[in-house]
Simulated assay, not measured.
Amino acid sequence: MKHQTIEQLQIVAEIDQAYPRQTMSRSERLERWAELLERNPDRRLSTLPQTEYQPANARAIMRGHDTPISIAFEDPVLRAAGLENDNYGEAKRFFELTDRQLHEIICYCHFGATVNAATAARHIRAAIAGRQPGMFARMLEAFVG
């Protein structure tokens, strides 16, 4: 998927920015994201490296091809609700996550270069509930995937 700014798109199409956004609660947005990932639970998705060590401005613009965030951005429902792109900062804003919560979902240090979609969905559901997956769940994910 090629990402373009609104200005770039306006050259080739008429853009109606007055289109009403679909209102979704934080829980509904996170639930939708988890459901999208669970549609293909064994899919391997890219992670983002060392999110916790990046300066805030660099972390905000981090993105990757075929990440859990890009899966959310591909969804027309989430885009209509206001998801503007597939970078870390936008996911943090749109899904109302803390850096720690998003780090648990997307960071390389937890999963390596890829994470399976079901695992990312579990971490998203933990964010909905306001908890982190336990140590046993982490160990199981490390050995089983």
Rank of each mutant, 00 (worst) to 15 (best):
E96A: 09
L97R: 01
L97A: 03
T98H: 00
D99E: 10
D99K: 03
Q101D: 08
Q101V: 01
L102T: 00
H103M: 09
H103R: 04
I105C: 00
I105D: 00
I106N: 01
C107Q: 00
H110W: 10
H110K: 09
H110S: 07
A113S: 13
T114Q: 07
T114I: 03
V115T: 07
V115K: 02
N116F: 10
N116D: 15
A118I: 11
A118V: 12
T119L: 08
A120G: 01
A120N: 00
A120M: 01
A121R: 04
A121V: 05
A121M: 08
H123I: 15
H123N: 14
H123T: 15
I124A: 04
R125C: 05
A127H: 03
I128V: 09
G130S: 08
G130T: 06
G130W: 05
G130N: 05
R131I: 13
R131G: 09
Q132P: 11
Q132V: 08
G134T: 04
G134W: 02
M135P: 12
M135A: 13
F136E: 15
F136D: 13
A137H: 12
A137Y: 15
R138H: 10
R138D: 06
M139N: 05
E141A: 09
E141W: 08
E141L: 06
A142R: 09
A142Y: 10
A142S: 07
F143T: 09
V144H: 14
G145P: 00
